[in-house]
Design a protein around this nucleic acid. Sequence first.
DNA 1: CTGTTAGCGCTTTCAT
DNA 2: ATGAAAGCGCTAACAG
Lengths: 337, 337
Amino acid sequence: MVTIYDIAKKANVSAMTVSRVINNSGRISEKTRIKVKKIMEEMNYVPNSMARSLVLQETKILSLLITDITNPFFTTLARGAEDAAMRRGYKLLFGNSDENLQKEKEYVDMMLTARVDGVLFAPTGDASLEHLSILRTHNIPLVLLDREVPGFETDMVLGDSRAGARQLVEHLISLGHKRIALLNGPLHVSTARHRLAGYKEALKLNDLAYDDRLVVELDYKPAAENLAMDSLLQQTDPPTAIFAANNFLAIGAIRSLRAKGISVPKQISVVCFDDFGESLSLDPFLTVASQPAYQFGALGIQLLIERIQDKSEGDYRKIVLPPELIIRSSAQALNIM
Amino acid sequence: MVTIYDIAKKANVSAMTVSRVINNSGRISEKTRIKVKKIMEEMNYVPNSMARSLVLQETKILSLLITDITNPFFTTLARGAEDAAMRRGYKLLFGNSDENLQKEKEYVDMMLTARVDGVLFAPTGDASLEHLSILRTHNIPLVLLDREVPGFETDMVLGDSRAGARQLVEHLISLGHKRIALLNGPLHVSTARHRLAGYKEALKLNDLAYDDRLVVELDYKPAAENLAMDSLLQQTDPPTAIFAANNFLAIGAIRSLRAKGISVPKQISVVCFDDFGESLSLDPFLTVASQPAYQFGALGIQLLIERIQDKSEGDYRKIVLPPELIIRSSAQALNIM
DNA sequence: CTGTTAGCGCTTTCAT
DNA sequence: ATGAAAGCGCTAACAG
C-alpha cells in the first residue's frame, strides 16, 4: 500500500509536505506541489480515509436509513439524499431496515462503529425511540424523515399526512361516496395516525359518521390486503370507496378486488397516498396524494449538514412538505342506483 | 469519546486486556472478562472501526454499485446482496451510478479511499473497463454483476440474456408474429448485445429475415421510446409485436402506444426482459423473461467473500442464471386479417 | 515554505 | 493471564 511516506521519500520532501499538497493547505511552492502531484499519480496513491478520519475525528460519511428499498417513495428519496450529499462532499451509507426493528438496531450499531458524521433516519415506528436515543447519547446529529417519533425532538422533514388524507377523502366525498373504507398502516407509525386523523376530519367536515368497521389496520405483510378486503366487503353496508394509506396497500387492495371480479373504479373507487415513479406505472390511473420524495431526501441532507457544521444548538426545525393531489381515474362518481 | 483506555483505567487493567475481551481472543480470567464487559456497558463503549481497520488492514465493508436504484431489478438484487453480506458479518456500502460513467468514477474513488474489502459492480457499460482496471490495480476483489465487460476477467454473476431473448421472441413467433421490433438498450452494454443476438437467433431458427429497420437502440433517456415508436409505426410494413430489452423500455413503449390510441395487446403485442416486483404491478399483464434478481445479489456476495477469504488466485468463476419465461397477457395471437 | 514531534484508537508481538 | 512497546497512515501544532 502506497502511503504519504512513500511519496515523500521519492519526492525528497517530508510527509507533511505531501499531506499539505493533498489537502491544499498551508503554503507550498508551486514547484514542489507539482513534483509531489506527479509522483502521487505515478505511484497510484490513494489517501486512506481511515487514517484521516482517525485523526480528524470526522468521516465525511452520512448514513441514510430507509424502511423499504423496494418502495419508489424511498428510492426516490434516496436519490435526493445522495445527490445532495455528494454535492457537498459527503458520502452516503445506505441502510434498509425492512420495517424491522431488529435490522434497524443492527444499522444503528453499524453507524456507531463506522463513526458516521450524521444520520438521516426513517424510523420503523414509535419503538425506534430507543435507537434514536442511543444515537443521541453518542451525540450524532440526526434528522428524522417521513415519520416522527413521540418523545423525540430533533430536526425533521415530514409530509403533511393529515392534509393529504383529508384531501383524498374529500375528493371521494365530492364524488358522492359516503361509505369510505380506510386501509391503514400500523398505528405505531406516525404517518398512519395522521392519515387516520385526516380521514376522520374529512368525514366530520362533511357530516358523515365515523364507522370503525370501515377502518382496517394492516402491518406491512404480504397478502394481508386480501383478508382485509374480504371482511370489508362482507359487511351489511359495504364501502363504495377505499382510501389506502400508501401505494403498496392500494395495489394489494386493487389486485384483491380484481381477483374477486370487482372492477376498479366502476364498482369500487380507490385512492391512496404516494405515487409511483413515472417509469414504473404502466397505466397511471391511480388518484393519489403524491409526495415530493426527492425533496425529502435533499432537504434532509441540507438540515443535517447545517446541523453538523453549525454545531449550533439552535432550535430544531421541522419541515412539512405538502402532498399534491393528482386526480386520475381510479376514483369515479358513485353510481346512483 | 470512550476508548479502550478509559475502560482499562476504570477496570484497573491494561488496554490490551480490554482489547482481548472485545475480540474474545487470548485467555482471560472469567472474572476480569465480566468486570470489563460490565464497565463497557456502563460507559456506552463503542469500538472505533476506523482505528481497528487501520491496524488490521481490513474494513469488513463491501461495496455494491448499481446503475439504477429506481429499477426493481436492482433494488431486489440489492436486498439479496445486503442479506447475504450481513449474514456473514460484512457491511454493504451502496452506490448508484445512474448509468453515468462520471458518477461511477466518483464511486470508484470512494471505494478506494474507504478501503472496502471487495466490490460488487454492475458496470454502466464497456467503458467501465477503465474503472475496473483501477480497482484491479489496487488489488480489490471484484465481482461483476449482470453485465460483463470485454477485456476484463473476473468472477461474475450474469443472466442468460441471449436465451431469454430467444425465448421471448420465439414466443411471439409462436403466436403468429413475423414483424417483431426490438427496442434495445445501448450496445455498449453487454446485455443489449446478447439480447440482440438472441433476437437474431430466434428469427433465424424460424426462417424469418432480419430487418434492421425493426431494431432500435435507445439510451436510457426518458421519452426516447416515444420517438422510437413513431418511426417504427411509420414504416410501410410496421411491426405487430415489440420485444423490449428491459422493463422500463416496455413501459415507455406501451405508454407511447396507448397515447397514440393503439391498444396493447389487441393491436400490438409487447414482451420484455425483467419483471417488476410483485408489490409494484397493479395488473401483472406483461409477458416477461423474469430474472432471479435476489439471487444475483446473494450469489455475488458469496463469490466475493470466497475470493476475499481464500485469497486464492483460483480460476475466475462465471455464474449464469437462466431467466424464467412468464407468459401473461401482453402478447396475443396475431389476428389474421 | 518546509520539517519534527506527537498522537488519533486499536492490535500485534514479545515479555513477564 | 496480563502488560509494554511499537506502529497502522495521517494531520495539528509548533519550530525553523
